[in-house]
Amino acid sequence: MNHPWCAAIAGGVRLAFHVQPGAKKTEAVGLHDDSLKLKLQAPPIEGRANEALVRFVAETLGVPRSAVTITHGLTSRRKLVEVRATGLDPAAVALRFNVPA
């Protein structure tokens, strides 16, 4: 399976997200170019949307929050996130986010 928004890296995966803060509920809604589009309930104020993103990714993948790091895009809608956890691969991540092949 080829998922342009999810790539394997040493010790985990790198994910590309397009984030829409201030939504009615937090959910993955599908692909947006080469990113996975996420709607986040949190507003883009004082880092709350970034915190919500880290929490949502950690809960969805079943990893501790400390394993999730936003590496690029802290003030942008486009974010790169690294998840450091063994046993994660792009296909498994896509299944957790309910993204079709």
Results as ranks from 00 to 15, higher is better:
2 N>E: 15
3 H>R: 11
3 H>F: 13
5 W>S: 15
5 W>K: 15
6 C>E: 07
6 C>Q: 10
6 C>K: 11
7 A>N: 10
7 A>M: 08
9 I>E: 15
9 I>H: 13
9 I>M: 14
10 A>C: 07
10 A>V: 08
10 A>W: 06
14 R>W: 01
14 R>K: 13
16 A>L: 05
16 A>H: 04
17 F>H: 07
20 Q>M: 07
20 Q>N: 09
20 Q>E: 09
20 Q>R: 12
21 P>F: 00
23 A>N: 01
23 A>G: 05
24 K>H: 11
24 K>D: 07
25 K>I: 08
25 K>F: 08
26 T>N: 05
26 T>F: 04
26 T>D: 08
27 E>N: 10
28 A>Y: 07
29 V>S: 08
29 V>H: 09
30 G>S: 08
30 G>Y: 02
31 L>P: 01
34 D>F: 07
34 D>E: 14
35 S>Y: 12
37 K>I: 01
38 L>V: 02
39 K>E: 12
41 Q>Y: 03
42 A>L: 09
42 A>C: 09
42 A>R: 09
42 A>P: 08
43 P>Q: 11
44 P>D: 07
45 I>L: 11
46 E>D: 08
48 R>I: 00
50 N>V: 00
50 N>A: 08
53 L>A: 01
54 V>W: 00
57 V>T: 04
58 A>L: 14
58 A>I: 02
59 E>H: 11
59 E>M: 12
59 E>R: 15
60 T>F: 07
60 T>G: 10
61 L>M: 11
61 L>P: 04
62 G>S: 10
62 G>A: 08
62 G>M: 10
63 V>H: 11
64 P>F: 04
65 R>S: 09
68 V>R: 11
68 V>C: 05
68 V>H: 02
70 I>D: 00
70 I>V: 06
73 G>C: 01
75 T>W: 10
75 T>Y: 09
77 R>E: 10
77 R>L: 13
77 R>D: 12
78 R>C: 05
78 R>K: 15
78 R>I: 03
79 K>C: 00
79 K>D: 01
80 L>C: 08
80 L>F: 12
81 V>S: 08
82 E>C: 12
82 E>L: 10
82 E>M: 12
83 V>I: 06
85 A>K: 09
87 G>P: 07
88 L>K: 07
88 L>N: 05
89 D>K: 12
90 P>K: 09
92 A>H: 14
94 A>F: 04
96 R>Y: 02
97 F>R: 12
97 F>N: 09
99 V>C: 07
101 A>T: 03
